[in-house]
Computed example of a mutant assay.
Amino acid sequence: MQFNEITGAEGIAIMPIIAISSDSYIRLTFERFRKITFVHLVSGLDEDKPAMLQKGTIFTEITGYTEWVSETTPTISIGWDWMIQPPQEKEGFYKRISEPRSNLMLIDSQQQDFGPVKTAMLIETVIDEIVWQNVIQQYISKRYTY
């Protein structure tokens, strides 16, 4: 992927163009990634697969998935799996339980890939800083209300 700096009418540098690389990744620096706004696309519940703990008892977890997309063109997609922890007070707590899935590859200032492991770790730091749990809870409540 090339970073092309666009210069506006007054000669002021504008953000580089975002493009898809030949390997289908969108490459950005971590600093640029942090400036992008993501919106919720979809979330859903996984099918329940209870595990037998003892005769007559079943242990169940409520787990699901979520997908968020950027408002850029082309679109950056980030998804992860979550579960609802047992309620501590009034409501359950949504917790991320997987590495993020994304079409994003983060790069350094010399445009060298960080690689999938470091990219996932940096994306996780951003996910864990935002308040996504309330958005998913509201979406799931509406989607699965009969």
Rank of each mutant, 00 (worst) to 15 (best):
Q138M: 12
T29A: 08
N134Q: 07
V131G: 10
N134E: 14
L104S: 08
P74G: 08
K142S: 02
K118W: 06
T60W: 01
S141P: 03
E89H: 04
M1P: 02
Q88T: 14
S43K: 02
T125P: 04
T60H: 07
D128V: 07
G92Y: 02
D46L: 11
T63E: 13
F3E: 14
E31T: 13
E31S: 09
S21M: 07
E67V: 12
I123L: 15
S98W: 00
D23K: 08
T66M: 01
T57N: 06
Q54W: 00
Y25E: 06
S77V: 13
T119W: 01
G79M: 12
I136A: 04
L122T: 03
Y65C: 00
I76L: 15
Y94T: 04
F114L: 15
T73F: 11
M1N: 09
S98Q: 02
T119S: 02
K49G: 04
Q137E: 10
G79D: 06
K95Q: 15
Y94F: 14
Y146D: 14
E91R: 01
G56P: 01
Y65E: 04
L104F: 14
L53Q: 10
P74F: 10
V69C: 01
K118Q: 13
G64Q: 09
D128T: 11
M15I: 08
N103F: 08
Q112F: 05
E67H: 04
Q2A: 10
M52R: 09
F38Y: 13
E89A: 08
E31G: 08
F59R: 13
F30W: 05
I76E: 09
L53D: 15
P100E: 07
I140Y: 03
I140A: 05
Q111E: 10
E31F: 06
M52T: 03
L53C: 00
V135D: 07
S98E: 05
A19H: 00
R32L: 12
V135K: 02
K95I: 14
T29H: 05
T145V: 06
T60E: 14
T63M: 12
I17R: 03
F30V: 12
V131C: 01
K35L: 10
I140N: 03
I140D: 06
W132V: 10
Y144P: 02
R96Y: 08
L106K: 07
G92W: 02
Q54T: 04
I18G: 07
E99I: 08
V42M: 01
T60M: 09
F59W: 07
Q111V: 08
F38C: 03
P87F: 11
